[in-house]
Nucleic acid binder design. Structure first.
Lengths: 223, 223
DNA sequence: CCAAAAGTGTTGACTGTACACCCATGT
DNA sequence: ACATGGGTGTACAGTCAACACTTTTGG
């Protein structure tokens, strides 16, 4: 076995960018232009610049690939198998980002590797070990929903109870009881009703709510 | 700002090695022999060898520094501030390891940087950002206790209910009710009584239990 | 008037917590 | 005999899950 110190693996970041669109949880994928895995779909990512933190690199990737104003970014896990990249030993620090669909300033530009949101239910074959990263990210997101207030990063500032509940249902992939959901969520004291009413839909108007604080919070008990 | 691709940070691993000894949760520290932070206490760690995974490097470090047969190893988080190491940009992938005190083959050898177990209540000043890593590790360990069966890695094969409960109490740093603890733990169906009895102490002999499976398990509800 | 989502309480099951005494052994 | 941890059950409180109907608007 060849052992040699100070020959570090190359370091990249890859970012799983989640958003809710329609009735789906979606992630952003780009189409690779270069080898390896040319023309395959992949998570947006890239090599670390000199003296750049992985978090800074993630923001850079997000901005460049998705034009997204991110409201939440979290490190997930470092994937470091020496065989995950055919070019050699390249480790990646995986992040997940949450973006309210309203905050996306997103143009599907061919010259930018054709960034496209895919429903997590219909993910194409991905380059590298990106499917593993995605699976890990979804698991983390589901877990975080249940004991933190991360959901606020996927919602607009003002939202109806129905939107809130839908977001939970879409991510957890199961129906929740309307009355129990409202009761529990109100007890958490995370959101408050505003005086505003959402009219103009073809049903009874709904009260709009907002988060009391937009700081991240961990809760003892939740769902 | 100087930006340059393909100039990766150096990569290390650092391992928080937990064990229970006496009535304390302890971690292994070594005394640095070289600069930077010469003669300060630090977590055992080291640079990745060529084509070595971080997990392999962690096992190597464990074996060399602690002579420990590790029953549990888990990646925690990657710390990557460019300023955490005065020599330059060195990122570290932090791991935590759990070792049953019985499995330690541990000699406090001066020539091996004087490895010493310290109670987490009395940690000296640590090199680099190792205190942050330790704080993170303790938080993760406490969380994992409550929804997995990791505790098995800190116990001998056969143990009394009292040892089991003590282990929880020491790590969570609070007293638990004896009757409720026994009731809940038995309902989990993780352990079974053996026919063996621990005699020779100066009290009523205690039944010895064992884990039904030593594979890691996640539980819906726990503590 | 019809369709669609908004909004609202009660009950029974279950889970968690608090709490005190006798037992078997070694010294 | 006494000190030490071993071992056991009950009752109350709090939380969770199941469940259906009326309201308000737009079309």
């Amino acid at each position: 076995m060849t052992k040699k110190l100070f020959l570090p693996p190359a370091t990249t970041v890859d970012v799983v960018i989640f958003t809710i669109e329609g009735n789906d949880l979606k992630i952003l994928l780009i189409r690779r232009e270069n080898e390896p895995f040319r023309r395959q779909w992949a998570l947006p990512g890239g090599f670390l610049f000199k003296n750049e933190t992985a978090e800074q690199a993630s923001y850079r990737v997000l901005h460049k690939k998705a034009g997204a104003r991110v409201s939440y970014l979290e490190q997930l896990y470092t994937f470091d198998s020496p065989f995950r990249d055919p070019r050699g030993h390249v480790l990646t620090i995986a992040y997940m980002a949450l973006v309210s669909h309203k905050n996306l300033n997103f143009t599907k530009r061919k010259e930018l590797q054709n960034p496209t949101f895919y429903s997590v239910k219909k993910i194409p074959k991905l380059a590298f070990d990106h499917r593993n990263i995605l699976v890990y990210a979804i698991k983390r997101l589901r877990a975080k929903l249940e004991y933190t207030n991360v959901v606020l990063s996927l919602l607009p500032k003002l939202f109806t109870f129905n939107q809130l509940q839908k977001t939970y249902e879409i991510i957890l992939n199961r129906k929740l009881d309307k009355r129990n959901f409202r009761k529990k969520f109100m007890l958490l004291k995370l959101i408050r009703p505003t005086l505003k009413i959402l009219k103009g839909e073809r049903q009874r108007p709904a009260r709009l709510y907002q988060f009391i604080s937009r700081k991240s919070a961990e809760l003892k008990k939740f769902f």
